[in-house]
Design a protein around this nucleic acid. Sequence first.
DNA 1: CGAATGACTAGATGACCATCAAACTAGATG
DNA 2: CATCTAGTTTGATGGTCATCTAGTCATTCG
Lengths: 123, 123
Amino acid sequence: MSKQRVSLLSPAELEDCRIPLVSEPLSADQAERLASSFKALGDPVRLRLLSLIASHEGGRACVCDLTDSFDLTAPTISHHLKVLKETGLVTAERRGTWVYYEARREALDLLSTVLAVPQAAAA
Amino acid sequence: MSKQRVSLLSPAELEDCRIPLVSEPLSADQAERLASSFKALGDPVRLRLLSLIASHEGGRACVCDLTDSFDLTAPTISHHLKVLKETGLVTAERRGTWVYYEARREALDLLSTVLAVPQAAAA
DNA sequence: CGAATGACTAGATGACCATCAAACTAGATG
DNA sequence: CATCTAGTTTGATGGTCATCTAGTCATTCG
């Protein structure tokens, strides 16, 4: 495992970043962790994958439910799912022949909070 | 201008994306536009720049207020600001010698909404 | 066990991108 | 006008990444 993908979403560091970036400047460290999450969201395929998973019933979907929506080979889909997993945006679980991916709603909620514009600060 | 950066945040297309990705699958088109915004946020330097600008008084900051926070050359900072501008996350305005960047709160708010987890859908 | 199916890993390749040094533009000031 | 300061543009470079093909692992089923 040569490449270590930074995951901000280990419970320990999770709460440390739960501050709207409008409210106070991010530390270099917080920015590093948050950026790796946003980078994961910065690909159309991954965004759609995450949306498909999260909006699927139970917030969970099998890989076989996902591939048909794309004009991409299975390894490519697998690669993107891996990125989402390593970033902590989804979890994976094997059930017999199939692998199910589940959206981590806490992660989405955290990122949403970071981008939120508190009413008091609105233009 | 060879490279055209996709900006989702032109008012026209803005409202079209104002749907939590948890609620329903993103269209390929929506994903494309949103991804370019998240990609812009997917760099630690740009995240900090945006945070510095947005949290500065008036939600506005001069370039000279920003450069000192980084160990980077001026052209690099300028490059990142340009990306943020082209993505619609900030606007720029010249005032005499200085250039002021202002955070577009509607843009942040939109992205926050996309990532939001509606209560009814929470785990 | 052998074959089939679902999913992942490994390695290669072409495209993109963050960064810098050098050169340039714009406004202010003497 | 000459010069200084603030910021940007250009071009080059090294690194990262999305995608593919080929091969592998895991599970089920005959």
